[in-house]
Design a binder for these strands. Structure first.
Lengths: 330, 330
DNA sequence: CTGTTAGCGCCTTCAC
DNA sequence: GTGAAGGCGCTAACAG
């Protein structure tokens, strides 16, 4: 009963008694075909179980209806809302997401991007700025719309949706200064963006700060360990700035396990405004960034360009804001 | 300086002074080409910045080197390790992952699968069992290898890597019985798999259990709310079985906020063995499932089939195990 | 509104 | 070991 081969547009056209191109138009450009013909073609599609071969269509039309998305690692929960909204936004416009992971390795990143380009996506969305000059050059020469995200630069490859990690660090540093804590520590991821925030923080404070660096993934366990390390460096520690809410959570658990009161004995601040942070006891002060919006804007930039719509601005700073909660209150 | 058009294999062949097909073979089947020719072609590739068009290759060769992955929602952290290892495993074998989200909607699922089939992936990996019979039929007729995951069935569409949620529920029910708790509650996601676990749990207990259903996403906030609801139903509550560690975390926070001691006043059990669960205070009892392994096995099933390797078994039960920790100890 | 023609860029099949 | 045709399935471009 199952047909030996999948139906092609050719079969549909024959079944409907029209030419190949008419069948094609009935499906992908119904405006220019008579209603009666469309009905015939539609009936033939149902009868044959036809599913269009998007590979072939893409080859000819130069529109693959795919967008490549590249993240360091999917498990970096920070980027998840961005990828999720990116996928949904693309999907609504008929695009599919091709996913790549770099595992924070520049060589892997270059090779992933290379393969991605070969698939002729209609756009490429990258988390962070592409580091290697060779890869940047290849991307530019590919003429594929590129959106770098979650960071800021005056010289993106093409377009950019992000914010300044330096400024986040500055803002946090000033906040910590204002609070008057005297023995501050940092629990920081080892990736480029976390280091940028740390640099900004230190610049605002105007002095070095004891730091526990954490290799990815930043999670609760490593947060606990980071606080242990910081307390070994500085027993009088009274505030910790963490590069993610997951780390902050770990610092909080470790602090409570040691009988420290939060924020009286130890103030804690995170980054990313994870879904749990507002609902912990005590709730966690953090930096809010609109992840879903980054994904949405990146999708729009690409879709608009593909449709020939004018692009208002190609560098979008979505900003950020410090959300003060109980873990640093008072 | 930038070339007006991307280089094609044609350009490479001309540059290298060989025929088109020789250039093609030098790149994709070097075994049958002389070393000298390969070197010439390689030089031409570097000179032109050639990147193979995988769309065109896939059209002719019937191997797109893409695998489709379908999840309910990316933010369901349960599946993340699976998707991450799936992506890495595929990537190592030269495959790319095409991502789709169903948002737990059967209609969206059907339409996403349809589009996926149209892209001619070499395999499709789906989280959960495909519900709609129409979609199952289309998948079968597409002749694309399909792997359903994170569930069990004797009649998968094609292949399957998962475990029995019914049995997880049974095992948890028996564990709760053995512990002798008398006023048990359930905080459960509303999705199909969470309901299956709940059914198994109730079957093992042999009586109905007060339940707070939680619509997706299951997170800390909804866990807190779930405990509040359960306590309203049953003030003498002494144990809660949760359908995820995120919910369990929320139940724990809410319990502690109400001055309940864990596990003395309230025992808590989760599901999924999230990365934080082992390191909380108290640590959270949970059910461990090897998510990365599911992704790895699914990738292997597809890659092996594509390479014509014999498939040992097409239904793999990866099992599970209850991990007892402090939140139910004593 | 519909049809004919000519490829998209590459790989399979066959020859040499 | 290398090369010359032909076509994968579809859609732009131009006719009618």
């Amino acid at each position: 009963m199952t047909p030996p081969k999948a139906a092609t547009l050719h079969d549909v056209a024959r079944e409907a008694g029209v030419s190949l191109i008419t069948a094609s138009r009935a499906l992908s450009n119904p405006g220019v075909v008579s209603a009666k013909t469309i009905a015939k073609v539609q009936a033939a599609v149902d009868a044959t179980g036809y599913i269009p071969n998007l590979l072939a269509g893409g080859l000819k039309s130069k529109r693959s209806l795919m967008v490549a998305g590249v993240v360091p690692a999917l498990a970096v929960s920070q980027f998840l809302p961005t990828v999720q909204s990116l996928t949904n936004e693309l999907s609504a416009a008929g695009y599919q997401l091709l996913l790549g992971q770099t595992n924070y390795d520049p060589d892997v990143e270059a090779s992933v991007l290379n393969t991605m380009i070969g698939r002729q996506p209609d756009g490429i969305v990258i988390t962070g700025l592409v580091q290697s000059e060779a890869a940047r050059d290849k991307l530019r020469r590919s003429r594929i719309p590129v959106v770098e995200t979650w960071d800021l630069s005056d010289q993106p490859i093409d377009k950019l949706v992000g914010f300044s990690h330096q400024k986040v660090g500055n803002a946090l540093g000033e906040y910590f200064l204002k609070k008057g804590w005297t023995h501050i520590g940092i629990a920081s991821g080892s990736d480029h963006r976390a280091r940028m925030r740390r640099d900004g923080f230190i610049a605002a404070l105007g002095r070095e700060v004891p730091t526990a660096f954490v290799s990815p993934p930043s999670n609760l366990e490593r947060g606990r360990r980071a606080l242990a390390d910081l307390l070994a460096l500085e027993p009088r520690l009274d505030a910790v700035c963490c590069s993610s809410d997951q780390l902050a959570h770990g610092v909080m658990v470790e602090a409570q396990a040691r009988g420290l009161r939060i924020p009286q004995d130890l103030a804690i601040c995170g980054f990313g405004n994870a879904d749990f942070s507002a609902h912990m006891v005590p709730s966690i002060t953090t930096v809010h960034v609109d992840g879903p919006d980054i994904g949405r804007l990146a999708a729009r930039l690409i879709i608009d360009q593909c449709r020939g719509a004018p692009i208002a601005e190609s560098i979008i700073d979505v900003g950020f804001r410090i959300v003060e909660r109980e873990s640093t209150a008072g």
